[in-house]
Design a protein around this nucleic acid. Structure first.
Lengths: 333, 333
DNA sequence: GGTGCGATTGGCATCGTTTGCAGACACTTC
DNA sequence: GAAGTGTCTGCAAACGATGCCAATCGCACC
C-alpha cells in the first residue's frame, strides 16, 4: 500500500480512504490513487484490514455434503449474491456431528468469518446452541429455526399439495417413501411425511408409508417392498427426487410402465428429474441460497435487526411420470 | 489472546508458541495454556497471524460451475484433503472469462490466499499467464499445463479405450458426440475426440462425429441428427455422461431399446450414469480434487520444488447400455 | 561454589490497514 | 483583512498475532 501511496504522491491514509470509497477524498486524488493501485495491481490485504475493522469480509458455509445436486445449486445461489456484496465464501463440509463439532471449535471460529450459513444441516436444538457459542451470527438455509434468520419452504404444505395432485388424478392407493438414516428423522422429511398424511386423511384415503434409508438405494428397496404387497399402490410419492430415481429404476427394470402402471412423484426438481420426466414438487434452491446470502449480509451489516424469516414458494412441475390410474382410464374410456 | 495469557499466567509469546505447537514450551505450561484457551473457547485470528507470517492458511478454488456433479465431487475431494492439512477453502464461481478476469484482479489476489486451484477451467495460455500475474501459485485440476503443478487424466487414451470397447463388441458404425459452446473447443473434449479418431482409424472404421452444444440438450439434438442419417449408427459414444443422458432420453422416448438397438457409452461415471445403467469411462474425480489439494499443499510448503504432474487412471465401467450390435447377434445366434 | 549450558520464558518491534485527531488549505462572509 | 467554515490530507495509535533477542532458571560439571 505504501508503494501505491508513493506512486500517487499521497499518504497511506489517503490511499486507504480512496480505495475504500470513504468520503472526504478529492475526486482527482481518488482517481490518481485508483490508477496507481491498478498499475501496481494492488489489492488490500483482507487480513490486515480485518484486524482493525473486526470484519473479515468472509462467510463460512457449512454443508453436510458437497456432491448432491442440491448443495451445488444452493452454493451457486449464495456465491452469486456474495460476489455482488463483495464477500468471500468459505466452504466446509461437515458430514457428521463430530465434524460439525470439530469445525465449530476450530476453524471458522470467532474472528475468522463474519457469519456462518448452515445449509440443510437439520440441526437439533443442542447443536444450534453449540453453533451460537462460536460468537458469530448464524443463518439457516433450508431449515426453519425460531429466532434465527432462516430461509425455508413449507415442506408440509408442499407435500400435501403433491399428494393432492395424485389424489385429484384419481389415485387412492398412494404410497409415501420416507427415508431415515442412522441419525433419525430429518426435519424436512418429517414435515413432508406430515403433509402427506394430512392430505390423505383429508381425502379419506388410507396412508401407506414405507421407510428406508436415504438416496436412490432406499428408493429401490422401498419399491421392492411396495411391489410385494398384497395390493401394490398405483402411485408412489418419494420424499425426494433422489429416492424417486431408485423407484424409477426398479420399475424400469421390472418393465412396469410409468405412469401407465404406477405414477411416480418426486420432490426437489433436481436436474435428473427433468432428464427422466419425473413429475415433482420443485423448490427454488438457487433462490434459497441467494436469499441465505442476503440474510447473511443483513445480519452482518445490521446485527441488531430482528431475525428475518423467509418462506419461499414451491411449485408442482407436472411431467410424464404421473397420470390417472389405469382403472380410472378404463372406466372413462 | 491476552486473556488466555492472563488466565494461564504466562506471557503472550508463550501462548503463541504453545498454541502453535512450536518447540520450546514446557509440557506443563503447554497444557495449562491449552486448557485456558479451551475454557475461553479461543482460537487464533488467522488474519492477525497471516499478517506476520505471510501465510493465510487459505486456498482459493476457481470453478466454472458449481452445480454439475463433477465439481461437487472434486470440491469434496479437495475439502477432505484441505481439512487434514488445516487449510480453509474459498470457492469462487467464474462462469465466464469476464468473471475470471474480475476475480483475478480483485478478490483472492495477492495476500489473501496462499494458492489458487483452477478446476476444469480449460484456460488458454493467455489466461494462464494472467493467473500467474496474481503472484500466487496456481494448481490446475483436470487440465494438464506444462510447467505448472497439475492433475489430470489422459483423455485421449481413455476415449480411445472406450471406443475400442465398442469396436471389440463388434460395432463399426460408432458415432461420437462432441460438444462445443460459444467459447470454442475445450481441452478435454478436443483430446477425447482425438482418442476416438485414433481408435477408429486403427480399426479401419469410418469416424462419424456430430457437434452440438454441451449438456443433455446437446446430446438430444445430436441424437436427432444421428437418427435421421441414411444409416444410423449402432453405437454412440458421448463426450460426457451429461451428453449421454440426452441421448438416452431421446432413445427412450423413441422406444429405441438400449442396448438392443443402440449402444450408448458415456464418459465420467457421474452418479446418474449408475442410475441409468450407463456404460461409461470413469474418471477419479474425488481423487483428482484430493490430489489437487495435495499439490497445493506442496506448492505452499515447498515453493521452490519443481511443478509436479499427476496423471490419474481412468477405468471402463461396463453396465447395461452397451452390448454387441443386433446384426452380430443375429449372425452368431 | 562458580561457570557453562540448554531449556524456557518475557519484552518488544513488526506485519498492513483503519481511524480519530489535528493541521493545512481554499473559499466565504462580515 | 480577519475570522469562520468547510474540505482534504497527514500523523500516529491501534488491531492481534509472530519471532527475534535477551533474560531467567535449573542443573551438571569442574
Amino acid at each position: 500500500m505504501s508503494d501505491v501511496a508513493e506512486r500517487a504522491g499521497v499518504s497511506l491514509s489517503t490511499v486507504s480512504r480512496a480505495l475504500r470509497g470513504a468520503p472526504g477524498v478529492a475526486p482527482q486524488v481518488r482517481e490518481n490513487v485508483e490508477r496507481a493501485a491498478a498499475e501496481l495491481s494492488y489489492v488490500v490485504s483482507r487480513g490486515a484490514s480485518s484486524l482493525v475493522t473486526g470484519r473479515t469480509g468472509r462467510v463460512a458455509v457449512l454443508v453436510p455434503f458437497l456432491q448432491p445436486w442440491f448443495f451445488g445449486v444452493a452454493l451457486a445461489g449464495m456465491n452469486t449474491q456474495m460476489r455482488s456484496s463483495g464477500r468471500d465464501m468459505l466452504v466446509y463440509q461437515v458430514g457428521d456431528v463430530d465434524e460439525l463439532d470439530g469445525c465449530i471449535r476450530s476453524l471458522p471460529l470467532r474472528s475468522n468469518v463474519d457469519a456462518v450459513v448452515a445449509i440443510a444441516l437439520d440441526l437439533d436444538e443442542k447443536e444450534i446452541a453449540q453453533l451460537d457459542e462460536i460468537g458469530v451470527p448464524v443463518v439457516f438455509c433450508s431449515q426453519f429455526v425460531e429466532c434465527r434468520p432462516s430461509v425455508f419452504i413449507d415442506n408440509s404444505a408442499a407435500a400435501a399439495a403433491a399428494t393432492r395432485h395424485l389424489l385429484n388424478l384419481g389415485h387412492t392407493r398412494i404410497a409415501y417413501i420416507n427415508s431415515r438414516d442412522a441419525t433419525g428423522f430429518s426435519w424436512s422429511s418429517r414435515d413432508r411425511l406430515r403433509g402427506y398424511r394430512q392430505a390423505m386423511a383429508a381425502a379419506g384415503a388410507e396412508p401407506l408409508v414405507v421407510t428406508e434409508r436415504p438416496g436412490h438405494e432406499g428408493g429401490a428397496l422401498a419399491t421392492g417392498r411396495l411391489l410385494s404387497l398384497d395390493v401394490p399402490p398405483t402411485a408412489v410419492f418419494a420424499e425426494s427426487d433422489d429416492v424417486a430415481m431408485g423407484v424409477l429404476r426398479v420399475l424400469r427394470r421390472s418393465r412396469l410402465d410409468v405412469p401407465e402402471v404406477v405414477s411416480v412423484m418426486g420432490f426437489d426438481d433436481s436436474d435428473t428429474a427433468e432428464l427422466l420426466d419425473l413429475t415433482t414438487m420443485a423448490q427454488p434452491v438457487f433462490d434459497m441460497g441467494a436469499c441465505a446470502a442476503r440474510l447473511a449480509d443483513r445480519v452482518i451489516d445490521a446485527p441488531d435487526s430482528e431475525p428475518e424469516h423467509v418462506q419461499l414458494e414451491t411449485r408442482l412441475v407436472v411431467r410424464q411420470s404421473t397420470s390417472t390410474p389405469r382403472s380410472t382410464r378404463n372406466l372413462t374410456s
